[in-house]
C-alpha cells in the first residue's frame, strides 16, 4: 500500500503539489461565512416570495369561496367587453342605416331635381 502511494505521488507527470498556504485558508474562511450567509439570504428571499404567493392564492381562494355563484371579476370584464362590442355593433349598424337613409334622400333629391328640370323644359316648350 505504501509503495502504491509512493508510486502515485511520484509516478505521475502532471498535477498539483499539495502545499499548506495560510492565505488560502484565510480566504476559505471568508468564503465559509460569505457563502453560507449568501445561500441563507437567497433562500430567505425565495421563502418570503413563496409565502406572499401562498397568501395571495389563499386570499383569492377565500374570496372565490365567499362570492361563490356571483360573477367573478373576469366574468364582469367579459360582460363589459361584450356590452361594448354590442354597442359598437349597434353604432356601426346605425351608421350604416344613416348612410343608407342619406343615400336614399340624395337619390330622392336628385330625382325631384330631374323632374323639376323636365317640368321647366316642358313649360318652355
Amino acid at each position: 500500500m505504501t509503495d502504491l502511494i509512493r508510486v502515485m505521488e511520484e509516478g505521475t507527470s502532471s498535477g498539483i503539489q499539495l502545499e499548506y498556504n495560510p492565505e488560502t485558508v484565510l480566504r476559505t474562511l471568508n468564503i465559509l461565512w460569505q457563502g453560507l450567509l449568501s445561500v441563507f439570504i437567497v433562500i430567505l428571499v425565495v421563502f418570503l416570495v413563496v409565502v406572499i404567493l401562498n397568501l395571495i392564492s389563499a386570499k383569492s381562494a377565500k374570496y372565490k369561496e365567499a362570492h361563490a355563484g356571483e360573477p367573478t371579476y373576469s366574468d364582469k370584464m367579459k360582460e363589459k367587453w361584450a356590452n361594448r362590442a354590442a354597442a359598437r355593433e349597434d353604432r356601426k349598424a346605425q351608421r350604416l342605416l344613416e348612410k343608407e337613409a342619406r343615400k336614399i334622400a340624395r337619390e330622392e333629391r336628385e330625382k325631384q331635381k330631374a323632374e323639376s328640370q323636365e317640368n321647366d323644359e316642358n313649360k318652355d316648350k
Binding site: 498539483i16 498556504n21 485558508v25 476559505t28 468564503i31 465559509l32
Partner: peptide, 19 residues
Amino acid sequence: IFFTIVLAALCGFGLNEAI
C-alpha cells in the same frame, strides 16, 4: 460544502481546487 472548502485548503489544495 463550506466546511469542506476550509478543510481542503488546510490539506494544501489551492483556492479553486478547494472550492
